[in-house]
Design a protein around this nucleic acid. Structure first.
Lengths: 107, 107
DNA sequence: TTTTATTATCGTAATATTGCGATATATAAA
DNA sequence: TTTATATATCGCAATATTACGATAATAAAA
């Protein structure tokens, strides 16, 4: 069917999965790494740096924004996309919490 | 096109993304949580617990195995799926490394 | 106002993922 | 050996994702 049955899972499971899913693409990993290491973070730079079409980069940026990892501010006629550090730390903590509470085992 | 251009990213970016991607489904999150809290970890239990068809659960288990998070041992006529704690910790560390080295910013 | 530059959105094609029934495989029990 | 139980795999349908060209929208510059 191709559609995830989100209704049979609880909110935390769905949120966690959604977060992992959005990080689950090499272009989005690369975008985050590039924005992080640059002082300027303009979409057009990303197009050249990453090697995907402008429309594609814009789409990936939108997805990263959807979980709050990026915030974009208009700067002249271009955009400045930045990592939202509060959200970044929040997600890292949430993810570590999952890892730490799920590592008990039967074997 | 629907096909991720893995060749334009480096191995670490692709591996990290692949790992995130596999955790990016609520059923797989739920499976890991259930195996962790149980003393027995049998696929048939999972089918009842999660509420997806046996074939679907089996497929999700296979994906979790593909990144080494689960190891399965035959136990009588059923399977015992367990979390591989070494791999678990390794992935958690790798992921934290990504988070810690990518949180610098321009804004 | 017109032009130029930058980013977003639309529409579409190709491929991937999700889920399941049916069936194959394997082992224990009868 | 036959039957029952448990898991894996195959094949398919439905939906999602990825990527891109074309175009819209926005704002600075001429």
């Amino acid at each position: 069917m191709g559609v995830t049955k989100t209704q049979i899972f609880d909110q935390r499971q769905n949120e966690l999965a959604q977060f992992f899913k959005i990080l689950g693409h090499p272009a989005r990993i690369a975008i985050l790494q590039y924005i992080s290491k640059q002082n300027s973070c303009i979409c057009n730079d990303l197009v050249e740096e990453i090697g995907l079409a402008q429309a594609t980069i814009s789409q990936h940026l939108k997805e990263l924004k959807s979980i709050g990892l990026l915030k974009g501010e208009i700067e002249g006629k271009s955009m400045c996309y930045c990592i939202d550090l509060d959200r970044w730390n929040e997600l890292q903590a949430s993810l570590n919490s999952f890892f730490n509470t799920t590592k008990h085992n039967c074997c």
